[in-house]
Nucleic acid binder design. Structure first.
Lengths: 249, 249
DNA sequence: CAGTGGTCTAGACCACATC
DNA sequence: ATGTGGTCTAGACCACTGG
């Protein structure tokens, strides 16, 4: 367990004390200063260090636990949690896990890759700023040997420089990014489109067949991380979610 | 403001006290015993009535407020909130509001209606139990005079008997249900389909054009309320959601 | 056994909005 | 002015679990 005593839990004086404590610890986690598995100081230590009562410290930690940033256990203490793999309905979901969850064999292939400054077609498709350095990849994921989903992705090399030297043979880039980067914000869009001739060929469809297009962009603290377009054959895929009106259940 | 002193906030003795209080009040709200606008007793009253300390009562109420079931204001007190109109990404959303939010004129038309025992085609399409009493409606919603979305809906008359005598001329059934029924669970599915000849005709598309199909079923405490299939022309619609990994922001 | 988090209390002071 | 919720404290006891 990593030592955390070096890191200052710095309060900013704005808002309630419990919320200052919550945000201070949250920032240490999402900035990467406290990676998953790091031990969070016990309540009594935070009490003394921050001059707050235990209930106030507790309130901050309970909220962080409810948000899933930390895991708490009696006696063994509090540690930084691993980022969740999936989200309510749309999901920063590992495609290998998605396929294997269906009981099928998973495989993938990188069809194309180009690194460098974004070109105008990429800028338009992914709403990029001009002249950003990206890795641009096209991949096909398959399940039991049949095409499952076509992926087109850009990775922002300024945010994730290690991606430049990764060849994505052991693991598709979505999974690699889950392990080698952090995201704090995501935007999803879903729409129905007709498969182009090229897309249809790769997915084993007829041209014009309906497909579900999932577009996702993620950021870490305002810095763009990646943007991806996933094209699923429509007749074979549904996205399902269950929840109640006051939050997911 | 409705009087709440008649209703017992009944604790069940299982789990922490603050959670018993939270569930007791939540049950009064979702059961309809305390409709929106009802005044929740102030903390000091609940303290005395339940024999709990103020912090414990407060903790229960804070959580209910965070879940959106109640609204709290200093001095004026706590009231039961109106059910939220929309949800993170898929949304129990009013279609009129959706259209007007785009700055367009809204109109709708009931194309067909039949009440009675579910037929086999309906049972299959909506995964109904056999021989349930339903109202079955088909509607077309339009924006600025152009077709916007095609709706096919069943309403469970055992759960919502008032729907049998409602003609849905003033308001489409989705909006009417938001006002005349409660839901505690929903299931959404989204997929891409090709428009049939009939659907294409109604939506002003060519046969086979890709459409986004949103299927939704809702329940109130295990009792089915309604099921709906919304068919959106794919080239004109996207569903967008934004969130962080640890919950919506 | 001892260290951790989980719950609960009694009381205090403050902030705010309505009366 | 007063009633409401919002925050915070100091202390207590309990439940769980690893050493």
């Amino acid at each position: 367990m990593t030592d955390t005593t070096q890191d200052a839990v710095a309060l900013d004086g704005v808002g309630p004390l419990y919320d200052q404590i919550r945000r201070a610890i949250r920032d240490l986690i999402v900035s990467g200063a406290w990676p998953p598995g790091t031990g969070v100081p016990p309540e009594h230590a935070l009490m003394e260090r921050l001059g707050a009562s235990r209930m106030t410290v507790h309130r901050a930690l309970v909220q962080l636990a409810r948000e899933g940033l930390i895991t708490r256990r009696r006696r063994s203490g509090t540690i930084v949690a691993s980022p969740p793999a999936s989200h309510t309905m749309f999901d920063i979901l590992s495609i290998p896990d998605e396929v294997r969850g269906l009981g099928q064999d998973y495989a993938f292939r990188v069809l194309e890759r180009r690194d460098g400054k974004a070109r105008s077609a990429e800028i338009a498709r992914f709403e990029l700023g001009s002249a950003v350095e990206i890795a641009h990849l096209t991949l096909l994921h398959s399940a039991d040997g049949a095409p499952h989903v076509l992926e087109e992705r850009v990775i922002h090399l300024a945010t994730v420089p290690d991606a430049a030297t990764e060849d994505f043979t052991a693991m598709p880039p979505g999974d690699w990014l889950l392990r080698h980067s952090l995201w704090t914000q995501a935007e999803h869009a879903i729409s129905a489109v007709a498969a182009s001739a090229t897309q249809a060929g790769l997915l084993g469809l007829a041209e014009g067949e309906p497909c579900l297009l999932v577009e996702r962009r993620t950021w870490n603290q305002e810095r763009p991380v990646t943007a991806v377009r996933l094209l699923y054959p429509g007749h074979r895929h549904r996205f399902v979610g269950r929840f109640g009106p006051y939050g997911n259940v």
